[in-house]
């Protein structure tokens, strides 16, 4: 059975995901130690303890993301969070930074380590390096690979792989992008945020609504139409004669059709993005994907229509899983 790894931005979302059938949930602490460091989101060390116990009671695993790159001079906070995670009895931590991986392997050898997508390990050599150097047991694959490439990678590695199937989509190699800090001073790697709301301004300019990030116009839409959030890499820009979405259209990832192919490619776990999403959204997505993984395990046809409802009215892409994306 493929493991379904689901987002939990809050204790309530964690319970909702587990009740909806998540095999595992992932979450973070309420600080810069994780890549979804948003106001009102995440767990205090005290909140994590009953959340882990509750999930375990229902047979679900809890994975804790400590996937930012510790600040020079401030590593102690990340080290403390590793200890907090282990004390709460979590099933694994998800790490990206070499220094933190080294520290965890040395000081918390029994705490299972997964490699975060923020480490962008995109080939068997990189994955085997992390496995050998830090005894990483699972790698979350970057969203830059085709299914064929994932299959080839799995033939050359011994650790498990986890692949994103639904939700937000980074078009840059994850963990290797400073676009957000160039525009706002805050980045995923250092601060756990990308295109932060604190730097967003919507300005009425003539007939348009301009969505700006750090003073740079990312979108411009007619006032009477909904303006998309100004995520930098999904913006509309001009280059020479061309105007459009230079990097990526404002789409989200939807690879549900590829679940059987990913299973065949040797993927252990399917990951759903969205720790910033509501409890109701998480429950709905998890229920639909759990029906799909159950169907796959039983050899039944996948109930894809159920999943189709979730992306209704939105643009979705299979991303790099389809080679034409590049």
């Amino acid at each position: 059975m493929m493991e379904l790894v689901c987002p939990a931005g809050t204790p309530a979302a964690l319970r909702a995901a587990v009740e909806a059938g998540a095999h595992a949930v992932y979450c973070g602490f309420s600080d810069e130690t994780n890549a979804r460091n948003f106001p009102g989101l995440n767990f205090s060390p005290e909140e994590l303890v009953p959340a882990v116990a509750g999930a375990h009671k229902r047979g679900a695993k809890v994975l804790v993301a400590l996937n930012t790159f510790p600040r020079a001079g401030g590593e102690k906070l990340w080290h403390q969070r590793l200890a907090d995670a282990e004390a709460a009895g979590v099933d694994a931590v998800i790490l990206a930074d070499i220094g933190l991986l080294d520290y965890a392997a040395t000081h918390h050898p029994n705490l299972r380590r997964h490699l975060s997508v923020q480490a962008a390990a995109a080939n068997p050599d990189a994955i085997n390096f992390y496995a050998e150097a830090f005894d990483v047991k699972r790698v979350v694959l970057p969203r830059v690979l085709t299914v064929a490439e994932i299959s080839a990678i799995n033939k050359e590695i011994d650790v498990e792989t986890e692949a994103f199937v639904f939700g937000g989509l980074c078009v840059m190699a994850e963990g290797r992008c400073a676009l957000s800090s160039y525009a706002t001073g805050l980045s995923p790697n250092m601060n756990g945020v990308c295109s932060p709301a604190s730097h967003v301004v919507y300005a009425e300019e003539g007939p348009d609504l301009a969505a700006k990030l750090g003073g740079f116009t990312i979108h411009r839409t007619p006032k009477d139409r909904p303006a998309p959030y100004p995520t930098l890499c999904k913006g509309c820009f001009t280059s020479g004669e061309q105007t459009g979405h230079v990097f990526e259209d404002p789409v989200s990832l939807d690879a549900r059709h590829l679940i059987p192919a990913l299973a065949k490619a040797g993927v252990t776990a399917l990951k759903i993005e969205g720790r910033q999403r509501s409890r109701a959204y998480v429950a709905e997505v998890v229920r639909a994907f759990r029906a799909a993984t159950d169907a796959l395990a039983d050899g039944r046809e996948l109930p894809l229509a159920e999943l189709a409802r979730l992306t209704e009215g939105q643009s979705a892409t299979a991303g790099a899983y389809a080679k034409t994306w590049r």
């Binding site: 590593e75 930074d97 933190l100």
Partner: peptide, 9 residues
Amino acid sequence: NVYNEGTVA
């Protein structure tokens, strides 16, 4: 990505 003393070491 070299962000901290642990990685340098």
